[in-house]
Amino acid sequence: MTGVMHPRVPATERDRDSVSALPNPPPTGRLEALRAFLEAHGAPPYRFRQISDALHQGRAARFEDVHALPASLRAALTQQFGPWLVPLRLVAVQRAEAMEKALFETASGARFESVLTRYRRGWTSLCVSSQAGCGLGCTFCATGAVGLRRNLSVDEIHGQVVHPVWRGQRPDSVAFMGMGEALANPRLLDALARLRETGLSPRRVTVSTVGLAPRLRALTTTQPQVTVTLSVHSPFPDQRAELIPLERRYPLAENLDVLDRHVVTSRRKAYLAYLLIDGSTTRGRTPPSSRGSSTRRHARSCST
């Protein structure tokens, strides 16, 4: 977030978070470390299940809140991993009738937001962040003006979904539409696998992207049931490049080709997002006939 002060983190917490503070945290995460710690200390297997259940059900914020564990084990886990069961500190929360927004901070000081939306028909959707900041520099995006601090780890993405701030309410769907470009995070596929462990169907997950064609291709190949939203914002290459600099490397037409094949093979819908910017993307303009016909042809195959 812009203009947010990051308080100094004690050295012990910095050291504990040194791995997840790397630009691309490794796939081995907190749950794996917890399991290894319990095994090394001779704890029975059901102790890990008790921790995992408390985490996924959003019942506990700290190890000391997992009352199914003996006090000695809670103390040992706190000493080894710090007090928090979820590796995110809640900095602030705003609540309204249909929406809740939470600002989280990692032990290394990286900050990002998640937003839970409640709809009139009774279902909920959680918008999660994949990065602290973003390095793509889209000119319409406030996060892009901040720049990229680092990718979020699998635990930090997963932690947004199961955090007790939502008071044990599991979202009906999750959208990667918060801070950051999800496909630029090399841990995205690992995060999607972790979300399945919470019982969330891939069909209930949406990944939004401005268009990293090779990684979009990998996502649609390995996770064909995940819903994809491609940010278009302009069908004109020159104008889109002004809004989304990545257009110069991975043109819209290349990304639409990926989605065209995806909807045919998976029989899943894909979505195209268009931002109306007064005096820019709202101005009338006739595209060249060859480019226009190609764009419209692909858009028809990918639209809802």
Rank of each mutant, 00 (worst) to 15 (best):
G109L: 00
H41F: 11
A241K: 03
G159L: 01
H56I: 06
V4K: 15
A43Q: 08
M99C: 15
V264F: 12
L246C: 02
L275S: 06
H262G: 04
A68I: 01
I244D: 06
R248V: 09
A96C: 10
H56Q: 11
R204Q: 09
R8E: 10
S18W: 12
L192H: 07
Q169P: 07
A107Y: 05
L246A: 05
A61R: 01
R268M: 11
G82V: 06
R167W: 07
V264M: 11
R121N: 15
S173T: 13
P44K: 09
G58Y: 02
A299I: 14
P45F: 10
C134M: 06
L85K: 01
D172N: 02
G133P: 01
G180C: 00
L152H: 05
D260S: 14
R35M: 07
R89K: 13
Y46L: 14
R62S: 02
L90T: 12
R149F: 04
P287F: 11
R95T: 15
R261S: 12
P202N: 14
F236G: 05
K101A: 08
V264R: 15
G58M: 03
R121E: 13
S266A: 08
M177A: 07
H163Q: 13
S303F: 09
A241G: 09
R170L: 10
V210H: 03
T286E: 05
W166E: 03
V205G: 04
R95A: 07
A75N: 11
A218D: 15
T78C: 13
S303M: 15
V66R: 02
D257K: 08
G122W: 01
S52I: 02
H158N: 03
V19T: 08
A96L: 12
V91W: 00
W84H: 02
A175V: 15
T220G: 14
S153Q: 12
L216Y: 00
A184L: 09
P202W: 02
E13I: 03
